[in-house]
Simulated assay, not measured.
Amino acid sequence: MRLAVIADVHGNCAALQAVLEDIAMLGIREIVNLGDCFSGPLEADRTADLMILLDAAGTMTVRGNHDRHLLETAPHAMGASDAHAHGQLAPRHLQWLRSLPFSAIYRDEVYLCHATPQADDVYWLEQISADGQVCLNSVEEIERRAAGIEQALILCAHTHIPRAVQLADGRLIVNPGSVGCPAYEDDAPCFRKVETGHAMASHAVLEKSEKGWVPQFRNVAYDHMAMSRLAQKNGRADWASALATGRI
Rank of each mutant, 00 (worst) to 15 (best):
L100I: 07
H66R: 13
T73S: 09
H114K: 06
F38I: 10
W239D: 14
P189L: 11
A201T: 11
V5M: 11
A44Y: 07
A104K: 05
A90P: 02
V139L: 11
T245D: 00
E207W: 00
G64Y: 12
L54I: 04
I248C: 04
G11N: 04
A188C: 09
C13W: 15
Q17S: 14
L125Y: 09
A4L: 02
I31K: 01
T61F: 01
A226H: 01
M227Q: 06
E21I: 04
L172S: 03
I6N: 10
A57V: 00
N137F: 03
S39Q: 01
C181D: 02
A85R: 02
M25C: 01
N219P: 00
K233L: 10
E185N: 14
V139Q: 07
H69K: 13
A242Q: 09
D49V: 13
G132I: 14
L167V: 03
D169F: 07
A201E: 03
C135G: 12
E143S: 14
A244F: 02
R63P: 02
A119S: 08
E30R: 15
M78L: 15
L153I: 14
M25Y: 06
G40H: 07
G246H: 07
G197F: 03
Q216K: 13
D36V: 08
C181N: 08
R229F: 06
T59M: 08
A199H: 00
P182A: 13
F38R: 06
A242C: 09
L54K: 11
A74N: 13
I161C: 01
L3N: 03
V174Y: 03
R92E: 12
Y184E: 00
V139E: 09
D67I: 10
R68L: 13
F191H: 03
A188K: 14
G58Y: 11
L94Y: 08
H224R: 09
V19A: 06
M200C: 13
Q133R: 14
G235Q: 09
D55A: 15
H93M: 04
M225A: 08
A57N: 04
M60D: 10
P75F: 12
D131C: 05
V32W: 11
H198I: 05
L89F: 13
P91V: 06
I149M: 11
P117C: 10
H198C: 01
L153G: 12
Q88G: 10
A14S: 11
R192N: 10
C135H: 11
L26C: 06
V62I: 07
V220K: 05
A237G: 09
D223Q: 15
E185Q: 06
N234K: 06
F102V: 11
